[in-house]
Amino acid sequence: MIEANNLYKVFKTPVVREGRFSGLRTLFAREYTRKEAVRGISFQIEQGEFVGYIGPNGAGKSTTIKMLTGILHPTTGEVVVGGYNPHQERRKAVRNLGVVFGQRSQLWWDLPVKDSYDILAKMYNVQESDKRRRIDQLAELLDLYEFWTTPVRKLSLGQRMRADLAAALLHDPDVLFLDEPTIGLDVNAKRNIRRFLKQLNEDFGKTILLTTHDMDDIEQLCNRVMVINHGELTFDGTARSLRETIGLPTEIRVTFRGPFQLPDTLDPAIRVTNREDEIVTIEANRQERSTVDILRELGTWGEIDDFEMKEPDFEEIIHKVY
């Protein structure tokens, strides 16, 4: 559905001259600063996948998305989305795409929400009956009628994002690109958006590529994660395998009943990080030892009353990858 072949993007900006007529002189300047934003990225996304695309600021996330959606032309390399190359047949390729930039609304700022849908329907040549049916459906899922006649500039961020998502779906695209769709939203609004996105993917079979800095988005939505750093893909796989690749230790808190004795030589896979009265906190790498083995080992220290396991935080995993 989405295919990127060896994408490179180099930004060349002319060095701006100082002084009078700087603009005109810049025009004839031969000095450029080069910035390699994306360096040789390739991947393939199949129909129905929900892919999270993550990386630190300035890693090349947005540049990649802009190349996939036909906004930027790659310096070298090729994109095929839904069978079309957006750089050769832009209008055909984008007809089947929905694009949402969390930072910027695609709606007409000064007009009531509903007016934007009329314009978009015209742009995508959506028939009147289809339009009405889809708007009804989207309005129900996203609760749009609540602010149907409010000018876009007066919407709250959460409302605006809902309206923007609906706008991107009015022409019923198969592929969705969402650039930080949950940015700045409160917990409740985030939950609603996530539930909606999950529904789109699972019930309506949309292929979705999403960028985010919120690791809950990734954990709850994506069945595949791609990590980009310094313009290169550093990871491509499931969220679980990302967790495993990094091999962050699992934290275990054990409460012993009565006295206990730590062995003189600890198992090298286990590390004691804290100890107070009956409670011992250890870190164990479950790549090297199974949970049962660790419990058996702990059992030799004393009688276990209770224990708690904490999987490594996704946020921390990501920090480790960056």
């Binding site: 959606t69 036909g70 209008r91």
Partner: peptide, 13 residues
């Protein structure tokens, strides 16, 4: 301001 982004994702000239 990068306003062309949005326009380029529409199937119109």
């Amino acid at each position: 301001e990068g306003d062309l982004d949005q326009i380029l994702t529409r199937p119109v000239p």
